[in-house]
């Protein structure tokens, strides 16, 4: 949303009920900084019969490398601004890089079939996630604060703080795995597998 665009009417809610939540973006030396830029998150109360997914907010388009801490931090800022509190328990199904779109283990195992239906029916589209609150009131508090925030004036919009990776982050991909950890992991997993197998028999 550039300054010129600001003059046109700002969209605060989408027709299908999603609240539009803007964040001002930090400036970068390498990028032109003629005007402020914004990121838009879309959020809506999540309705589900699934026990795990009660008190959840369905969010779309989380910014880069968002994690539980960053979502906690920004919601508490917003809630604070509108004099309320809300507690987040978890950030679920946030699979930014699509690594877990498919669970091969579940799909190849007969032993794990009991959970398969539930897991397989659960399908969250890419670029979406669920923010789970500790209780209903937390969810409602947050939702109300977000509604207010979505209509806040330009000057009241918070700046998003990215979690920037360092060179080390990328170089770490090349680092050797810790052998002791690996041994432990293999051992634990295989004994668990054997146990299950025996149980199944």
């Amino acid at each position: 949303m550039s300054d010129t665009e600001q003059k046109t009417k700002r969209v605060t809610t989408m027709k299908n009920g999603f609240i539009v939540i803007p964040f001002k973006l930090p400036s970068f030396d390498v990028l032109p900084s003629k005007h402020s830029c914004y990121h838009y998150l879309f959020a809506k109360k999540h309705e589900s019969n699934n026990e795990n997914e009660q008190n959840c907010l369905f969010v779309m388009n989380l910014p880069l490398l968002t994690n539980l801490d960053s979502i906690k931090s920004i919601t508490s800022q917003i809630c604070e601004k509108y004099d309320t509190v809300s507690h987040i328990e978890n950030l679920m199904y946030n699979d930014e890089f699509g690594l877990n779109e498919v669970d091969l283990s579940v799909l190849t195992s007969d032993l794990m079939a009991e959970n398969q239906d539930i897991i397989e029916k659960r399908f969250t589209p890419r670029n979406t996630a669920l923010v789970k609150f500790v209780d209903k009131s937390s969810l409602n508090n947050c939702l109300n604060a977000l509604k207010k925030y979505s209509t806040a004036s330009k000057s009241d919009i918070f700046e998003w703080k990215y979690n920037s990776p360092s060179i080390e982050t990328f170089i770490n991909f090349y680092r050797p795995l810790d052998v002791e950890y690996l041994k432990e992991d293999v051992h634990t997993h295989l004994s668990l597998f054997e146990q299950r197998e025996q149980q199944a028999q």
């Binding site: 970068f28 990121h39 920037s164």
Partner: peptide
Amino acid sequence: KPVDAESVILNKESIYHEIAAFSSD
């Protein structure tokens, strides 16, 4: 980013910021 209550457009600026943040070093 939203254009109106029903339509959106690719938020290039935001993506550029994300790329800049991601490749910061």
